[in-house]
């Protein structure tokens, strides 16, 4: 398609898009599709890159798409660290992952949240630009789609990609889910809350580089060994993976039969003391709900049930 122009570009000629999500969110798929759409439908070039680890479901990932005009040299590798567009699937990760770093002046930030743009602006320390808030979780849930579609919809709109073409591609990519996805797409566009922030001096630039950590070549233990006395994962917070959804526990209905212990995939998430079940550690449990089915019916009902707001 002729005539599509990138409105924001860095010195090398790239419009940088950075998506922060969790494994299992479908961010990679959405980004790859975005890249394909940009190249095939709008005659752009650029690249899709991701920061990889050994991501399992629920671990944080970085995905980026950089667009440029055809003919621009595409030489850099790896995700961008200076986004013009920042997409945040989980607003509570902004602080721990320092997602505010390196965001360009005048950037558009699309955030999955129920909080208003003013609050998100503070969280992102945005010098200037646009904040777009969408409740992607709710939209995805209500339409039986996935969390990536609402984000993709708003991102494409922010990029001024014509709506109909994007919808066609989404339907083509996932034909069985076309109806849900298109409903999520439209839902996102109609529910998005946008606010523009002029450069008011409230925040300055932030550098992309994150601090390296206290262990380095001077003090790393021999061979990279980890001291379990000081460095277990006890302080980790699994709410990132559970999204706060853990089973509901009714102590009155519990007879401490121990069956839940036999199926728990995060042992330690169920709190036991002196042979009695006392509760759920919400920072430990990942909300897999395996324990719900095996929990027997006692005289007072079920001790472990699905939390409120579950569709099933």
């Amino acid at each position: 398609m002729n005539g599509y122009r990138l409105l924001q570009k860095d010195d090398l000629g790239f419009c940088n898009i950075l998506i922060s999500a969790l494994g299992g969110d479908g961010a990679n798929m959405a980004a790859k599709l975005l890249f394909k759409i940009g190249c095939r439908d709008f005659g752009l070039d650029g690249g899709y890159d991701a920061r990889y680890g050994s991501e399992k479901k629920g671990t944080a990932t970085d995905v980026s798409v950089r667009f440029c005009e055809l003919g621009t040299r595409v030489r850099q590798s790896g995700p961008t660290d200076r986004p013009h567009f920042l997409v945040v699937f989980h607003a509570d990760l902004i602080e721990p992952l320092e997602l505010y770093r390196g965001v360009q002046h005048g950037a558009t930030c699309i955030v999955n949240t129920i909080r208003p743009p003013d609050e998100i602006r503070e969280a992102l320390r945005l010098a200037s630009g646009r904040i777009v808030c969408i409740d992607a979780t709710k939209i995805a849930h209500d339409t039986h789609s996935r969390i990536n579609i609402p984000h993709l919809a708003v991102l494409c709109q922010a990029l001024s990609f014509p709506e109909e073409q994007i919808k066609t591609q989404i339907a083509r990519q996932w034909p069985q889910a076309a109806e849900s996805n298109l409903a999520a797409f439209s839902g996102a566009l109609s529910c998005a809350v946008t606010k523009t922030f002029e450069p008011d001096g409230r925040f300055g630039s932030t550098s992309p580089m994150v601090s390296r950590g206290p262990i380095g070549w001077r003090n790393m233990l021999n061979g990279g060994t980890i001291d379990a006395l000081t460095h277990t994962t006890v302080g980790r917070d699994n709410r990132i993976a559970s999204r706060g959804r853990v089973p509901h526990f009714n102590p009155e209905a519990c007879n401490s039969c121990g069956l839940c212990l036999t199926v728990c995939s995060d042992p330690g998430g169920l709190l036991w003391r002196e042979g009695r079940m006392t509760g759920i550690d919400t920072a430990f449990c990942k909300g897999c709900m395996r324990c719900i089915e095996i929990c027997p019916t006692t005289k007072k009902g079920h001790a472990l049930t699905l939390p409120a707001g579950t569709g099933e």
Binding site: K57, V234, S256, C257, S265
Partner: peptide
């Protein structure tokens, strides 16, 4: 006796496996 065995400390703490993974169960 599962109640008694509930007193066995876990030999491992939190991990980042997918929710519902069978390994740590």
């Amino acid at each position: 006796n599962l109640k008694e065995l509930s007193k066995m400390p876990t030999r491992f703490d939190k991990h980042t496996a997918c929710p519902g993974c069978g390994i740590f169960t």
